[in-house]
Design a protein around this nucleic acid. Structure first.
Lengths: 190, 190
DNA sequence: CGCGCGATTGAGTAATTTCAAATCTAGTGG
DNA sequence: CCACTAGATTTGAAATTACTCAATCGCGCG
């Protein structure tokens, strides 16, 4: 069986090389958790103690509006980092929920440990900076796609970029990620 | 007259404290430029050598679609950092343009200098990490607003959050930031 | 005065939502 | 293996929202 920390190490070493001693330091800042489908890692209205590295599984980062409608800010899958960063970093209450779509395994890190780790290992801070940059780029692309494309075009772009999502996720969730009603999405299947 | 580097220093010191010696290092990585209204700092299709800290003025980060329609990914004003980060960080050609809406003064930094500065001054890297995190949070909010709100609501949110934009920017540009036609935006003025 | 640009208004059209009903599907217990 | 149920998906029709195209207005400036 593959050690969960091996997954993290491989992930980090896509960007920065680490000695065994350095990775030992990293390890001590994370703890392992697993969750069942439908469980919440972050619940709207609660404080957010952790940021999560996803080892396996699938989650949605979601906001529920007054009418209870699902609005999916992001899907999070293997090798992604996710949290309600606004709440995590500022100590505010969560405005988003992070909820399992499948059984999910994660490594989580508290804010104090995150700050500490960044301060003690510059390479790791540089890794997170890189991740944050590319997160921004991805978010900008999504904004641009919401500005310029109609629902059908956004659907086709998503299908092209993440075909696996269409296997793993009920269409109603895809609809709420794309910003269309599920009925409209359903009419695109031709 | 205020030295332009004083503005940068004050900006950095909102997050991290710097000694004079440290700030001298920072200074050497930036160079000052000024641009007139309608000039391009980044032109779609060209390589992107610099990232910009805006001292004064106003810019739009924009994508032009096939029909020449303006799609504004972001406005950038005093105290903001802006670039086509995708192109800047990867060496790809720009897919976005960065264009002056007003006469604008900036401090710019090349990628090599950026990497070098982050490596030599951990505090600065930590500053950029913080900025990147909050950029992500802002982008997520915009995504959520595009997903959940109709054009009128987005208009009202923007008016509330950045009233000054409504003074400084022609409404046709606000429309293209909000993702509505200028005619539709015009019908909201009541 | 007259030009040019941005903003507004009107009318027709296209895209999308909403509500309601019908269909399909996977899992459960008998 | 079958019937049953809950959830997900599809379909239809009407209502709404926003877009497009075209005409008009308003204003600053040479």
């Amino acid at each position: 069986m593959v050690d969960m920390f091996d997954v993290l190490r491989a992930h980090l070493e896509k960007h920065v090389e680490l000695t065994d001693a350095e990775f030992d330091v990293v390890k001590r800042h994370f703890s392992f958790r697993h969750y069942k489908k439908h469980q919440f890692l972050i619940q709207e209205g609660e404080p957010v103690k952790y940021s999560y590295f996803i080892l396996s599984g699938l989650l949605k980062l979601v906001h529920y509006d007054e009418k209870g409608k699902n609005n999916i800010v992001s899907f999070a899958m293997e090798d992604w980092w996710e949290s309600d960063f606004q709440a995590y970093l500022t100590g505010a209450k969560a405005t988003l929920s992070l909820e399992c779509i499948e059984d999910t395994k994660v490594l989580r890190i508290s804010l104090a440990d995150y700050r500490n780790l960044c301060a003690s290992l510059q390479k790791i801070q540089s890794f997170f900076l890189e991740k944050a940059h590319f997160g921004n780029i991805a978010a900008q692309k999504r904004i641009l796609s919401l500005l310029t494309s109609n629902a059908k075009e956004r659907h086709d772009q998503l299908l092209k970029q993440y075909p696996s999502l269409f296997q793993r996720v009920p269409k109603s969730l895809l609809a709420s990620y794309l910003g269309v009603s599920r009925e409209t999405l359903s009419r695109f299947s031709d």
